[in-house]
Design a protein around this nucleic acid. Structure first.
Lengths: 340, 340
DNA sequence: CTGAAAGCGCTAACAA
DNA sequence: TTGTTAGCGCTTTCAG
């Protein structure tokens, strides 16, 4: 480890001066500057980020709290968030809570303000008051994917209009001529995906087609759960011609279930999801879905968090991303007249 | 921010004592201990991890350098690595190089030894001598997925026998009766996947079936590249009955290409990959592949890195994971007699 | 323009 | 058992 003062000694100056040239703080004569730079190069000096952080009173890292980075949606978000953080000289620490509130709490307690200057929170099953508490202790927090722009939370957030995403999906299915829907909601009834379903059901109602509750399944947000629920749904309601899923993973599961039942997507049954994860492009048939602006949300989340950290902004703020967009691929088509 | 000395003042002791009770360093009387604990609770004191790191001369973080966390293989590895790191009180910083050596170098220069105690390196296109240099500066480095147990590198590593993985894939195809193979290698000829191909080709040769070079394609490690290459391969060599891919992503692309050609997997053509990423289970047909012990590799990588950091071990060390295992799913079957 | 000195919050000898 | 004293490596006033 070569330190500032070693560089200083070699350059025949004091460490304050070295610090000044390294941080471009003007007030250094050209020749000393050169001497210092030479010494830095000769010794291969690299600033000690931890020491700098302590002295500056700010950490060079941001934390991203997710339930599990292995959930296929998060890596894309994390990549964009890291890029945005790097653009501002910050590193990104990834924290997996596995949906365990205690784990989440532990991350907040240990890191917020002591190792990370701020926390990016993705759905990680953390109670609001816990988050507010860490914010009050001085470590900004931003909710990265708030689902209800109409109901701002008491914390800074980047909101995505998932209600509209659900509505877009519903309208697409309606426009194709579907009337008999099954719905897969990837959360509990009161959970995070409820808003998407309300958007979908609202679109149906607006078109004069009430969506019957018994054709809705509240499930876990996984391929397997989507598969299982679709099996049951189609068994109970053979007349269905379309499946709406609040997320792409259950939608993919639905497609597999339909195929295993010997039916064709979209020939017999259409399937639509929400998000547009990578798999959606790769599946056969490719999944029609409502794309969420992941990169934009990540970028906005980081920018907002930094603004909060640097007190250029004040909590609570809500910013809304661009509207989700229909991505029409191969899993939706007009209903099969011999069904429904 | 409440600090140690504030707690100390409230408890009527000195900060050294508070430090001692917090770090369980015995030598504290039971009553003072209780007073200190009360003060800690009352003030909601949380240790400042950055300050602690500086004082202890060790950082509480490990860094994981990958080309892109959005590559579907890495999140599973990252999840396991983070869990292992957490089990030892460390946090994990994720670094995406996007395969750009300059970015990788920047990470090494900035973080190694100054913000992270050690670096976990996944294929990130970093030159060996760069890595050796950072190790020599005192920040341990471990290569997380070395592909050649027979040729240990000059750095600590966790090796996976990818040669054998390729051989397993080859033997599986041969055992089913295939003789006309196409091969997709997800790297340059000299690249990271070459060993897998050598294992495959070796298995063919051992069975007396030379694999002709013109049926091999060196491509990028993506679904799209696999798709494209398979299209060309089947056009040029319509007699092929099986495709070996050095990774699951190109294998998935191959399956899509075959389907789009109006052929059936595995009825007309079998496809096998290597790794067993999540998608392999979800695709239809489900992908037969050679599973790599990802979790084990992640755990071993972290353990080794920590051992190096704590000088319980000395560089270079190579540890080999369990052998890859064939996971037979639905994308391989006996060849179609009407082909080949 | 450069140096001296204090201090970020914590740990770790060493004394008392 | 507890307090005192030095730092960890860097930044940042404030003098000179």
């Amino acid at each position: 480890m070569t330190t500032l003062s070693e560089v200083a000694r070699l350059a025949g100056v004091t460490s304050a001066t070295v610090s000044n040239v390294l941080r471009q703080r003007g007030k250094v004569g050209e020749q000393t500057r050169q001497r210092v730079l030479d010494a830095v190069a000769q010794l291969g000096y690299r600033p000690h980020l931890t020491a700098r952080a302590l002295a500056e009173g700010r950490a060079p890292t941001l934390a991203l709290v997710v339930s599990s980075i292995a959930n296929p949606f998060y890596p894309e978000f994390a990549l964009a968030a890291e890029r945005a953080a790097r653009a501002h000289g910050r590193f990104l620490i990834v924290c997996n809570t596995n949906d365990d509130p205690d784990t989440g709490r532990a991350y907040l307690d240990q890191m917020a303000g002591t190792l990370s200057d701020g926390m990016l929170i993705m759905n990680a099953n953390l109670p609001m008051d816990e988050l507010k508490k860490t914010e009050q202790r001085g470590a900004p927090v931003v909710l990265c994917m708030w689902e209800k722009p109409d109901a701002p939370p008491e914390l800074p957030c980047i909101a995505v209009d998932f209600h509209e995403a659900g509505a877009i999906a519903g309208r697409h299915l309606l426009a194709l001529g579907h009337r008999q829907f099954g719905a897969l909601v990837g959360s509990k009834k009161s959970g995070i995906h409820a808003e998407r379903y309300r958007g979908f059901a609202g679109a149906c109602a607006a078109a004069g087609h009430r969506h019957p509750l018994q054709r809705t399944r509240y499930i876990r947000d996984t391929v397997e759960a989507g598969y299982q629920a679709t099996m049951e749904l189609l068994h109970a309601h053979p007349q269905l011609t379309a499946i709406f899923a609040s997320n792409d993973l259950p939608a993919l599961g639905a497609m597999n279930a339909i195929a295993d039942l010997g039916l064709n997507v979209p020939g017999d049954i259409s399937v639509i999801g929400i998000t547009d994860i990578q798999w959606a492009r790769v599946s056969r048939p490719a999944l029609t879905t409502v794309a969420v602006p992941t990169d934009e949300a990540a970028r906005m989340s980081v920018e907002l968090l930094l603004a909060l950290i640097e007190r250029r902004s004040v909590s609570p703020v809500m910013q809304v991303t661009a509207t989700p967009q229909l991505v029409e691929r191969a899993s939706t088509a007009v209903p099969n007249p011999s069904r429904g």
